[in-house]
Design a protein around this nucleic acid. Structure first.
Lengths: 215, 215, 215, 215
DNA sequence: AATGAATGAGCATTCATTCAT
DNA sequence: CATGAATGAATGCTCATTCAT
């Protein structure tokens, strides 16, 4: 039997352990949400224990999604932090490079995001859902404001640019993430020239978009 | 008992009825694919009858998705048909108006697309899958070529623009399609000004994108 | 559409065609009863047509079983027909040789027999069942009497010998008919020396049995 | 909710309870394997619980069959245990009396055996299947050797006698196990004198067989 | 008589969640 | 707190049989 988590920090750590286990499993097979049994096993806990920390399986992935989004917004904040002597152009390029390479290395972010609104929300209590979303919207607004400030944009423009970038990222990934066995088919088609390299395609599209709007 | 579908046109009609029933149900609850039992009931048929027309449940939704995409590509072909005296600018504007309003009226297209290649494919025979995809890729390439011709673009540009537009559409919809009970929350947030009207947001973004690349 | 069977002989022929089709299919995969759809297809008829000639699927196989048994009993009658100058010993040996070689060439007889009492009877109307069994019991008694007469046995002995032989045949076959993938396992076991050759084993056991009782 | 089976003995008991329930149901309607739902209900458990103890429905019956066979072979070992002063004849008679009366009281053994390797095996994992068969073959060989020793038979003779006895038992039971509603019919037929009493018929046939070979 | 479209009961198995220990 | 045994709703698909044509 696992050590009892008595004080708050123990409990937070155990919660994190469950999240990490869920993330690992999802990364391994992102077609669907891993079962509660698998999450428990991966975390080295009993099935019942998981339900001491989360009310439903979906709440776990909702929390995971929330965490990932928070990290992405942190990245925005760092990229456009005040008191930075670089030119807007440099800031944007650096940000987009980071952003795209991070996405390319962690495609599970996109998978979770895609499942997000269609599957995960189903089995989550309203209070949890609203709290998560509220936190996200707040952080999202703050990140947009940071962009506005760094690039001298009119208020609201940054938020919209982040939104569009997110949309293009998700949509492009979805359109290009063909399963392995379709690759050959596509290679012979009209999409052949451009579409196979998601990261390059995304970087180019975002570069053009940000340049046209902000510089 | 339902009237027997004897000749080919009766059978095609019944197939369409099943597709329509499946589409209706999916639109009503796009969290997941409706059960085979529900589809049959919605179509006014017995469960077994559905399996006379489709081999698996997923094949139904694959067919639905295929149909919707074919319609969208037809729309492209019509919008950029040769022998059209309008200016490129007029063609693009007309196309985008049509496209966005069609999407706004038929959001199930996007919902199916979102599930699309991740869930539906699972239980579809390879022959059906490849035939569908091949047909789609062919039509996609043709539509891109029509765009190239109508707007005097270098070859391949049209395909890429369609792809990006599709991606932006899907991603934006995903980002903005909050469930009903979240609306109020968003209205009070930083997204308030822009984000609530998916159609307007999409139209603006696409307008800018196509203008910057084609005119 | 198939030619209509108008007179009685046409109908009997069609009935036989269905039986033959069922037999062929069962022979091909004797693990279970072929489906009604397969029988119809194999007979070149529509599904519904089969049900004009038999009330249930099981009735088909019941009729098939009945036919096979009638053939076996015919064989007995021929082997021990009156006015035969051979010695009892010769008659018995010749009969057993024929019997075993026939069984060895048509193991589906045994498969049907084995299914017979456990599965086939389930879905057969009482009238058909009793008529079949009565016919069989009558023929069985007659065959036994022929044995009695040919071998100068007390009345009833022949019936019992046929019964025991049938029992040993079915039981031995069942015990020795291991699926392919078990062969290797058995070859390494205590059964290795004797048990793998069903026909030889059966011939020896029956030879000893008949000799000890009849000669 | 049922008492939780915590320690190993509780769990073994629950497993046995499921086996017993399955056996009871099968005995009641040996046409086919009872459904998983029925087994659970008969055992007073929920459907899911059954699958905590067995991987598939067929595995239940495989285990049941294995258990019954093990018991029968134990009976052989006890009957022919070394250091027994009785004469071979006495040993054989005692064994056969026990054997036949046991069979007569537990006909489900035969019914399971009849279905045995044709239906049950279908849905059983290879590991379980091979382990069961290997255990059985080993025990079978050992029992045969015990017979050889007790009756001073040449090596391999005992195994063969057990095999033939098993075969005759199964075959005779199959031939004589008419469903209730056929009894009257048979009583009026040529089988009337002998065939209705399975146990007596079997005892006589086995007695003659063992005497002719071993004494 | 022949057809084959329509029917719908039947079933093994999974898995999120609960709760006795 | 932790456990893991128990639960039972949920579901795609088959196939014998019927019946409209």
């Amino acid at each position: 039997m696992v050590r009892h988590a008595i004080d708050a920090s123990d409990k937070a750590a155990r919660r994190q352990a469950i999240l990490a286990a869920a993330g690992r499993l999802f990364l391994r097979a992102p077609d669907s949400l891993p079962s509660a049994a698998m999450i428990a096993a991966e975390a080295g806990l009993a099935k019942g224990t998981v339900y001491l920390y989360f009310r439903t399986k979906e709440e776990i992935f909702m929390a995971l999604l929330h965490e990932q989004r928070a990290q992405q917004l942190d990245q925005v904040q760092r990229a456009f932090a005040p008191g930075d002597a670089r030119s807007p152009r440099e800031k944007v390029d650096a940000f987009l490079d980071d952003y795209v390479s991070h996405i390319a290395r962690h495609p599970e972010v996109l998978k979770l995001d895609a499942l997000g609104y269609s599957i995960i929300e189903r089995n989550v209590e309203a209070d949890f859902l609203l709290a998560s979303k509220e936190a996200f919207l707040t952080a999202f607004g703050a990140a947009g404001a940071a962009v506005d400030a760094a690039l001298s944009l009119p208020p609201g423009q940054g938020v919209r640019m982040l939104l569009h970038s997110h949309a293009l990222t998700g949509g492009l990934w979805q359109a290009l993430d063909y399963p392995e066995h379709c690759r050959e088919l596509i290679a012979r088609s009209a999409l052949a020239t451009s579409a196979l390299d998601f990261a390059a395609e995304l970087r180019a599209a975002l570069g053009q978009y940000w340049r046209s709007l902000s510089l």
